[in-house]
Simulated assay, not measured.
Amino acid sequence: MTDQPTNSAASSLDEVDDVVRAELSSLRESIDNIDAAVVHMLAERFKATQRVGRLKAEHKLPPADPERERDQIMRLRELAAGAHLDPVFAEKFLNFIIAEVIRHHEAIARA
């Protein structure tokens, strides 16, 4: 019997070839850059939705717009499919964002 782990997931990065380690590092750097871009894009999106929330509050419009939300979900599912991203995941992601936007709009309306 050897002392080497039989499950590759159990092996540490120290046991990985330098070429693999370099590729992993490069991929992770790209992922980190994408994550940063996503955060900045979400920040810009929420700046715009805050303005929408203020406009809705000023004109006594409801915080939620189910027709718009439905259209956006359909649009995003189509975009996801075209980008080879699971449309179900894209819909869950957008639903999470929509829920947060509505929460912000409700808070603005109460202020």
Score class of each variant (00 low, 15 high):
Val20Ala: 09
Gln4Asn: 11
Ala43Cys: 03
Arg68Tyr: 13
Phe89Trp: 10
Ala9Tyr: 09
Gly82Leu: 09
His40Met: 12
Asp18Glu: 12
Gln50Ser: 06
Ala107Ile: 05
Leu85Thr: 07
Asp86Pro: 00
Val38Leu: 05
Arg75Met: 11
Arg77Asn: 00
Ala10Tyr: 02
Ile98His: 00
Asp32Trp: 15
Thr6Tyr: 14
Leu85Gly: 02
Leu76Glu: 02
Val101Tyr: 00
Ser12Tyr: 02
Ser30Val: 14
Arg103Tyr: 12
Ile97Asp: 01
Asn33Leu: 12
Leu94Tyr: 04
Phe93Met: 10
Leu55Arg: 09
Thr6Val: 15
Glu106Lys: 14
Ser8Arg: 10
Arg28Asp: 09
Glu67Lys: 13
Val39Asn: 04
Val88Leu: 07
Leu55Phe: 10
Asp18Tyr: 11
Val101Pro: 01
Arg68Glu: 11
Asp71Ile: 11
Phe96Trp: 11
Lys60Tyr: 14
Pro5Cys: 04
Ala57Thr: 00
Asn7Glu: 09
Ala9Lys: 08
His59Asn: 12
Arg77Trp: 01
Ala9Leu: 15
Ala48Ile: 13
Gly53Arg: 00
His59Tyr: 09
Gln50Ala: 08
Ala64Thr: 03
His105Ile: 02
Arg54Phe: 06
Ala10Lys: 02
Glu67Val: 15
Asp3Gly: 12
Ala48Asp: 09
Leu85Asn: 05
Gly53Asp: 00
Ser26Leu: 15
Val39Met: 06
Arg54Lys: 10
Leu76Tyr: 03
Leu55Val: 07
Leu85Gln: 07
Asn7Val: 14
Ala109Ile: 00
Ile108Leu: 08
His105Thr: 02
Ile34Phe: 07
Arg51Asp: 06
Phe89Ser: 09
Val88Tyr: 04
Met74Ser: 14
Arg68Phe: 15
Ala83Ser: 08
Leu55Gly: 06
Glu15Pro: 08
Pro62Arg: 06
Leu27Thr: 11
Ala36Phe: 05
Thr49Lys: 03
Ala43Gly: 05
Ala81Lys: 12
Asn33Trp: 10
Ile73Trp: 03
Glu23Val: 08
Gly82Met: 08
Pro62Cys: 06
Leu42Trp: 09
Ser25Tyr: 11
His59Thr: 08
